[in-house]
Nucleic acid binder design. Structure first.
Length: 292
DNA sequence: GTGTTTGTTATCAA
DNA sequence: CTTGATAACAAACA
């Protein structure tokens, strides 16, 4: 379940690993995963390289050394794992730490590998995706700006993330604060895990209507969202099930989660039980004492 | 066989 | 027109 911190971790890692390396081959093992005709997809990658990697919300944007861009969305179970020549020639992709999660299994490609991009230095980038929700798509400048302009709200780690912009997202809305924060067109990058965490850190119940939040609650939420996102990036993301970084390693933020996945456990503040309900169609975790 | 997991979109309703 | 609520998608696991 890669959200902003996980996608950002992958972006930073891959910047150092694949930028300015020429693509020499592209294997598409599942047509569903590449959202272009196969011939178009291969023709627009082979022979080119990526000169930069950007991110908007949970979407990765690889700038191709042409006028095009490779979009990669991991959705729920997507992974991008990079293996260099040395590791490949060593006869396997197992890490000493034994850190590969189950879905990777230590072997690449594996049965969930959908796309493989090989670079001139014999390194390879594997796109694994158990559930085939994720995708790779090559778009031109026009389509890219259309997508970015229409689908993404304020971005927590940029200069756009100001108190003025944040408080505006509550205007003229009356849904639950959980649904609001999950809406990528309102605020980009949060998913189920970090919404629950940010609301706990702010002492706000997920089912509160957006127009019921007091100014001070919104202010705390504004700060806590940025804080939890930053901390999670510092810890290289959260692995709850399938997420791994570009080396197949798990994220370290999992043990710092206060409510997500902790149904029935003691609240770290008040020692009462963490509750789990269904809200906005999602499993929702909170403390009914600490969150008002 | 059933329920559960979630990012995003489609669809329908208000 | 806008906004919201919900189903659907897909695959695996308990």
């Amino acid at each position: 379940m890669p959200e902003l911190p996980e996608v950002e971790t992958i972006r930073r890692d891959l910047l150092a690993k694949v930028v300015n390396k020429q693509v020499v081959s592209v294997e598409i093992l599942s047509n569903k995963s590449a959202h272009n005709p196969v011939a178009f997809f291969r023709r627009n990658l082979i022979g080119y390289s990526f000169f930069d990697i950007k991110r908007r919300g949970k979407l990765l944007i690889f700038n191709i050394s042409s006028d095009k861009h490779l979009l990669i969305h991991l959705k729920m179970t997507g992974q991008l794992i990079y293996v260099d020549k040395k590791t490949r020639l060593a006869g396997g992709h197992k890490l000493n730490e034994g850190d590969f999660v189950q879905a990777v299994g230590g072997e690449l490609p594996n049965r969930f590998t959908r796309v493989v991009i090989e670079f001139k230095d014999k390194s390879k980038l594997f796109f694994n995706d158990m559930r085939k929700f994720g995708y790779l798509k090559i778009v031109d400048e026009t389509e890219l700006s259309r997508l970015l302009n229409n689908n993404y709200g304020i971005e927590p780690l940029t200069d756009d993330y100001t108190w003025n912009n944040f408080k505006d997202i509550f205007k003229n809305r009356r849904t639950s604060v959980k649904a609001l924060l999950l809406n990528q067109k309102v605020i980009a990058g949060l998913g189920n895990i970090y919404v629950d965490e940010a609301l706990f850190l702010s002492g706000v119940r997920p089912n509160r209507k957006t127009n019921s939040l007091k100014e001070v609650e919104k202010k705390i939420l504004f700060r806590m969202i940025r804080q939890v996102i930053k901390r999670a990036i510092d810890y290289r993301g959260t692995t709850f099930k399938d997420y791994t970084d570009s080396e197949g390693k798990k994220g370290n933020f999992s043990k710092l989660l206060k409510v997500y996945g902790r149904e029935g456990e003691e609240c770290c503040k008040c020692k009462r039980g963490i509750k789990k309900i269904r809200l906005a169609g999602r499993g929702t975790h909170y403390c009914s004492y600490c969150q008002k």
